[in-house]
Simulated scan of single mutants.
Amino acid sequence: MSTHDDLFDGILLAEERFRGEGYSEGFESGKSRGLLEGRRHGACHGAKLSTEISFYHGFAITWKCLLQNNTDNKSRKRLKALDTLMTLVQSSPHDDPQSAALQEDVEKIRAKFRQVCSMLNAPTDFKDYIKTSEGTSF
């Protein structure tokens, strides 16, 4: 009679066993998919941030080259602000994505960029600089 009971126990407990196996398989599948999506999102966000920071650096270098031969007081103030922007970009921990200061430093860089743009009468939206006629960016 114990073989007969084991057969029915196996049938009755099959639902519970399959539910447990399904949960485990689903959990592992979701975990690996979440990691892949997280990496993809992080790489995309990091690429955008890197593009933005690189733009600010190039912007500062270009304007510094354009203004370096001017000796008037206004140009000296602009050059000082550009130097400060370059220093902020170069000293920010953008190489370390887990840095606690990264977000704060990026906000400082953006604020200094807006200030420099105001001094130069240039558009302040970073995205205005990377648009092309085809609607794609580099």
Rank of each mutant, 00 (worst) to 15 (best):
T3I: 05
T3H: 08
H4D: 08
D5A: 09
D5Q: 08
D6P: 00
L7S: 06
L7D: 03
F8W: 06
D9L: 10
G10F: 04
I11W: 03
L13A: 13
L13V: 04
E16L: 12
E16K: 13
R17P: 01
R17I: 06
G20M: 09
G20E: 15
Y23E: 07
Y23K: 03
S24P: 01
G26M: 00
F27W: 02
F27A: 01
E28R: 00
E28C: 00
S29E: 03
S32N: 01
S32T: 02
S32M: 02
R33V: 00
R33H: 01
R33T: 01
G34K: 00
G34S: 00
G34M: 00
L36W: 00
L36H: 01
E37H: 02
E37S: 00
R39P: 01
R39F: 00
G42Q: 09
C44G: 06
C44L: 12
H45N: 11
H45K: 14
G46D: 14
L49N: 15
I53S: 12
S54P: 04
F55T: 11
F55I: 10
F55C: 09
F55Y: 12
Y56F: 15
Y56P: 04
Y56N: 11
H57Y: 12
G58K: 13
F59C: 10
F59Q: 14
A60K: 14
A60I: 10
I61Q: 13
T62Q: 15
T62G: 09
C65A: 11
L66V: 11
L66G: 05
Q68H: 10
N70H: 09
S75R: 07
S75A: 15
K77S: 09
K77H: 06
K77G: 07
K77P: 02
L79S: 05
L82V: 06
D83S: 07
T84V: 06
L85Q: 04
L85S: 05
L88G: 07
V89A: 10
V89Q: 06
Q90A: 11
S91P: 12
H94S: 12
D95Y: 12
D96T: 09
P97S: 05
Q98C: 09
A100P: 14
A100S: 15
A100Q: 15
A101C: 13
E104M: 13
D105E: 15
D105Y: 14
D105I: 05
V106R: 13
K108D: 14
R110L: 10
R110W: 03
K112V: 03
K112Y: 02
K112A: 08
K112H: 04
F113H: 05
Q115H: 10
V116A: 06
V116F: 02
C117P: 03
S118L: 11
M119Y: 06
A122I: 06
A122D: 05
T124C: 06
K127V: 03
Y129H: 02
K131E: 12
T132V: 02
T132N: 04
S133E: 08
S133V: 13
S133K: 15
E134C: 08
T136Y: 03
S137C: 10
S137L: 10
